[in-house]
Structures are given as C-alpha cells and as structure tokens.
Design a binder for these strands. Structure first.
Lengths: 218, 218, 218, 218
DNA sequence: CATGAATGAGCATTCATTCAT
DNA sequence: GATGAATGAATGCTCATTCAT
C-alpha cells in the first residue's frame, strides 16, 4: 500500500480552520444543498466524523463559514472607510476600493455569502449582514452631510447593489476593469464613485464638491 | 374505479404551461434542491410521470422555467424602452419603471431567476440572461450618445446591479419605496435615474441634459 | 444477467402485510436497534423505499408490528376466555390454552412484544398491553367470585408472569411440555392451572371448587 | 497543561469496578444499543481508552456487567435459601424474600439482566442464568420432597416466571405490594408462596403441610 | 499509564427517475 | 395517454474502536 498521508494529530484550531476552508470552497462551488459533507471531508483531506467534530452539523458548518467571511469582509471595509471626519465621497471611495480588493482574496467567501446563502435557512443571517452593510453606507452619508435618513437609505441600497453587480461582473468576466493597466479593483471602485457620486450631489443639493472628491486621490 | 375528476385529456401546450406554472411556484418557494418533483406534480394536480412527460428532467424543467421568466422579463423591459430615437435617460427611466413593475407580477420568476439559479448548473443560463440585459442597456447608451462601448459597459453593469439591489430590497422590505404615496415601482425607478443619471452625464462630458431628463415625464 | 424477480406490482395491502411480516421477523431476531431497514427490505425481497412507503419510519414500522401482534394475541385469548357466566378457573384454563396455542403460530410476535419492546420508546405501548392483559385476568377473577380487586390484582400479575415464564421456557427449550404426548400447549396451560388454581382457592377462602375445575374438561 | 484533577493512578481492580459500575448504570438507563461508550466513559469520569483497557469491547463490557449482576443475585438467593434440611416451602419463601429484597438494591442490574439482555447476542448468557435459577428451584423441591424431576421442572419455571412478573410489576408500579405497611418485598414474596404453595401441595399429593408452611415464619 | 484526536463502517431517510398496468 | 408502484443512489449523521502523544 502506498504510504497514505499519515493520520496526523493537529491542534484543534488548525484543524478547525482547515475544515472551514474546505467547507467554504465546496459550498462556494456547489451551493449549500449541492455540497455534501463527504465532499467537504474529502476536500479537507480528513474523515467525515472529523468534519462533524470540528464544524458541527451541516447547517452549523455553513453558518460558521458565513460568519467568518462576513466578519472578514466587514472588517476590511470598515478599516478602509476611516474616520467620520473626512469627506463622505472620499470615505466611500476608499471603502469601495477595499471592498473590491477584498473580493480578490475572498472570492469563494463572496460567492457563498451572496449567491448561496440568500436562500434557505440562512437568508436571515445574510439579510442581517447586508443590512449592516447598507446601514453603514447610509450612516456614512447621512452623518457626513445633512442628508435625511429617508433619502440616504435608498441611495445606500443603490450603491451597494451596484457594487455587487460590478463585483459579480468582475468575478465572472475576466476583462472587467482591465481597460487600463491600473489595478482593476481600483478601476471598478473609481468607476462606481464616478457614476453614483454626482447623483449624491444632486440629491443633497450640491452639498459636496463632487468633482473634487472624484478626481482626488488618484 | 369510480370516475372522480375524469382526468381530462388536455392539449399538450396547456398541460405544459400548467406544469411550468406549478414548477415555478414550487421552485420559487423551496429553491431548486428543496423542491421535489412530487411537490411539483402535486401543485400541478397531475401525476409525476406526466410532469416528466411535459417538463423533462428536473434540470430541464428548471431551465425551462428560467427561460420562460427571462423571456417575459426581457420582453416587458424591451417594449418599454421604446425606439432608439428618444433621449437615452428617458428610455432608461421607462425601462426601469417597466422592470420594477414587472417584478410585482413576476415575483416568483424573479426569485427563481436571481436567488435560486445563480448557483449550480444554471449559473451559466442566468449569466447569459444577465449579459443580455446588460448588453441591451449598454447599447441603449452607446447608441444614443456617442459614448464608447468600453465606457458604456461598466456603466450598464453598475445600473443593472443597482436595479437588482433595489429590487431585492423592495421584495424584502415592505417599506421600500413607500415614502410618498406614488406607485413604489415608479419611485424606485425614478430614484435610480436620479442617482445614476448625473453620473452618466459626467462620464459623457455633459452630452445629455440630465436635469431635464430626470425631471421630465413625471 | 440471471432473470431476477421481476418488479411485480402488488396490491397495497398485500405489500403492506409482506413488509410487516418481514419487519416482524427481523425485529424478533435482531431486536429493534439491531434491526436495520436494509435487513427488513432484504427479508421482504423489496427495496428500501418501498419499506418506507408501506411501513413508514422505523419507529412507526415497529409500532405497527407491535400493535398487530398484540391485537392478534388479545383476540385469540379473549375469544377463548368465553362468557362471564362460566366458572372462573374454567375460563382461565381455556384462556391459557389459547394463549399457549397462539404462541406456536406467533412466536416472532411474542418475542417482539415481550423481549424487544419492553425497552426503548415503546415501553409505554407494551406496558399498556400488559396492563390490559392483567386487568382482564383480574376482572375474570374479581368478577367471577367475590374476590376484592386488591387481592385479584397481584394474583393476576402472578399468573400472567408465570404464563410468560412458561412461554419463554417453551419457546427456548424444545422439551418443554413434551412429557406426555398431549398437545404441549395444553399441557403447559393445565400445569399452570394446577399450580395456581389451589392458591386462588386458598385466597378466596374456598369459594371455588378447585379440584373439580382442575380436573374438568380434560 | 495545568494539573487539574491529577488523574490519580488507581489500582486496576478499583478502576475496573468503577468502569463496570458506570457501564451498568448507563446500560440500564439507555439499553445496550442506546448506550454509547462515550457515555460510559463520561459516567465513570475517565477517558474512553481507559474504558476499553479495563472493560474490553462493548460486548465484553456488557457481558461483564451481566455476569457480575447475575452472580450477585444468585449469591443472595442461594444464601437465603439455606440448607437442604429444612422444609421446601420455608426455603422457597426465604429465597423469594431474598430475591425481592435484592431487587431493591440491584434495580439497575435487574433491568440490564432481564430487559436489555434477553435479546441479541446475550440471550444465551441470560438464558444460562435463568436456567441456573430454575435448576436451583427445581432441586430445592425435587430434593426436599420426593417429587420427580419431570414434575419439579415445569413447576420451577412457573414459580420463577411468576416471581419475574411480580418483580416487573413492582419495579414499574409504585403501588405494588403496598397494600399493608409491611415491607413490600416480603409482601410480594409471601403472596407468591400463598399462590403457588397449595399448587405444589396438590402436585405432590399432599406431601407437604402447606398451610403450616405458608402461615409459618410471619 | 492515560488521553485527545482521528477514522471506518453503518444506518435511517429521501428523491429523481422509470416500469407495468 | 396517464398513473400508481417501485427502485438505485445519495446524504446527513453516529458510533465503536484505535493511534500518536
């Protein structure tokens, strides 16, 4: 018999990450229902009971993936958005750049979060995340300028939706954002600011110097 | 056997529509994997083999639902967009209004298209549809004004993504678009034009009279 | 390929009995936990889903076996016990004869009822059955003679317990009851009456002519 | 690792008893199949491998419990039965009293022996025990009076079965044996002698002074 | 010696799919 | 043409058992 990988003993947290990583990959490729625990185990290179030991039931495992990826994504974007003192569109642009950058390293996570989870028993969890993101965006604007919340909220939904649309495009089409030789993530973020920035200006009655913000920080 | 409902022989195309309708309903409620062929048959009020006879395998059935709903949606929007002669933003707004209106009568279809199908073996099919929509939007602008395709395409992705985001919001949150007592579908469409219109103006170097178009046709 | 048994279509009630019979056999041999649905299916010569279709879940299947066997057994004994008008010991003897006779054709049922089910989620069901039997026996005596219930009840438990003990012996040991060439079931029943009859006489202060009853109806 | 409970090295036989006690408790509560080795280990407060080291496989562990409890029970009863010199019914009554008394302190053991083990791979073991008990009872009578073995054996089965029936009743129903305020174990034992004593007298043609024995030793 | 970590094997259950009527 | 009856193939999950430390 060829010397199979010997039954190594690993630290629980290492194993847990291993399992979560495998689960994320499989879930993102096959979807929640399409993914089998066997497939997760195989991907992780371990036995099925170990998956259960470290990840719990299939539902728990999926929820754990979800939460981990959401946390990661939110953290990146929040850190990039910076302090409330700055100009809203500048903060928005930095946040969007961070968002598109994060997707490059979290492609599977994004897929799981936005394509797999919005259905089934986790719609609630994902909805909550989405709401947190949108709220954050709405706060960014409602706080930064005097925009009333009732105006900021649909705007935030629009921007977040647009970002998701571009993200999907980017992850699907290899040419997306590659018109120039700048970093595609930045190109897409800037593009988005260019498109929605003036609209925000219009909504707020010119409270922001859009063009300045848009042309800034290149 | 006592002749209960006499199991009328129906014309094949009628049966087919019956089956597709049932399938759409079940798929939209339970998701692709959650839906069982038994449930579809029960919903259609026919036997399972008949479902197979008229709808093919589960995959084929799902794909058929997908295509039918996509066709419907595209047709509505295309019809509303009108002729190439008119002002792009006017056409865009009409198209968006039609889109949001269509969702009210095609809620199940939308759910299936965008929540269930974007994963699994149908991602391709959905992608193709999305691409058709985006192409159409890009044409609308690239044709209407002198915008180069390379600029129009990402813009189109942005707008379509934003529309999807708002649509999800709308279908999820009962308050979405109900700030005034205007038709919510129109409110959302107009909101979107307000947000992305000026950006288009900026992108094209002022080729369109945005403000006019935006305030027009109220 | 050798012509396997062709997938015959059978009437539902026939199939159901087939499945129940197989389940009873397997349960009686392996116990509830030891029995696998695969084994039941194999024994019935059908596929596993068919077992589920006709027998429900494993629990339901077991419960169904239980109830069917209990019903059978009770019916036999009740019929044999006859009308309240007759002498108690005569009725008791006839009932016991019927009981031991029933065991010959219901060996598996007995095992399932008394050896498998007294544990696990069905203890309640079996307890109820046992109580019905004991109550019936107690009534037989409390009603037939003037014995107070408080005396009849432990007596009934004693007699039923003794009958079960003999039954186990009989089903285990091939020699049991074969001292003479009379029907073993009858020998055991009569033996039991001989042993416990005089005790009943003693308990009731000689209300019954035991010896007469005991020697009667040979 | 911080030395919590220092996991004392214990003498092997002490450990073994610890493990057997835990196993008995778990088996009696959950049944053979329902009991998991994890549960046994947890109950014993030791690790699973230690259970294997001291108790062997699950089957062996169960068998060990079985044998230990059987031994205990037999010893109690044998000791109580006393010397062959005495009157058979007196000895029987003492033995029965000891039996019912033993159950109060060995409830778990009884449950395991008679409810869990009578099925599956241990039926043999339990049968052997039962046979030893019955043999003993038969010897008691065949030896004490001139009864031939062929008569004594079924009688013994009857008495033992009746005792088991009463025991089950007692352990199930809290009112059993509590008519007077005498010790229930004694009440049940005496009750049993009252019921089966006269029958033995009848079988042997009046060789024993039943009434004397029965009323004796109150 | 004692254990945490790991696994092979099995089980109840469901479902898409297809014959026989 | 339409259906009730049947099945092959998975799938989620658990457990007795054993290494590596």
């Amino acid at each position: 018999m060829t010397s199979e990988t010997p039954r190594r003993r690993l630290a629980p947290e290492v194993r847990r990450r291993q399992v979560l990583d495998a689960a994320l990959a499989v879930f993102s490729e096959e979807g929640f229902h399409g993914a089998s625990m066997d497939a997760v185990a195989a991907r992780a290179g371990v036995s099925k009971p170990l998956v259960y030991a470290h990840g719990g039931s299939k539902d728990e495992l999926f929820a754990a993936c979800l939460r981990r990826e959401a946390e990661r994504l939110l953290r990146s974007v929040q850190a990039a958005a910076g302090e409330p003192g700055e100009a809203p569109l500048v903060r928005l642009r930095r946040a969007l750049r961070a968002f598109f950058h994060a997707l490059t390293t979290q492609r599977a996570g994004w897929t799981v979060l936005y394509r797999q989870a919005s259905t089934g028993p986790f719609a609630g969890e994902v909805d909550a995340l989405r709401r947190r993101i949108v709220e954050q965006a709405a706060d960014l604007m409602a706080g930064g300028l005097g925009v009333p919340r009732a105006v900021a909220l649909p705007y935030a939904h629009t921007v977040v939706g647009a970002a998701e649309g571009l993200a999907d495009w980017w992850l699907t089409d290899p040419d997306a954002g590659r018109a120039t030789d700048a970093e595609p993530a930045d190109v897409l973020a800037d593009m988005l600011v260019t498109v929605v920035g003036p609209g925000l200006d219009a909504l707020t009655g010119g409270a922001i110097g859009v063009s300045a913000a848009v042309s800034d920080e290149r």
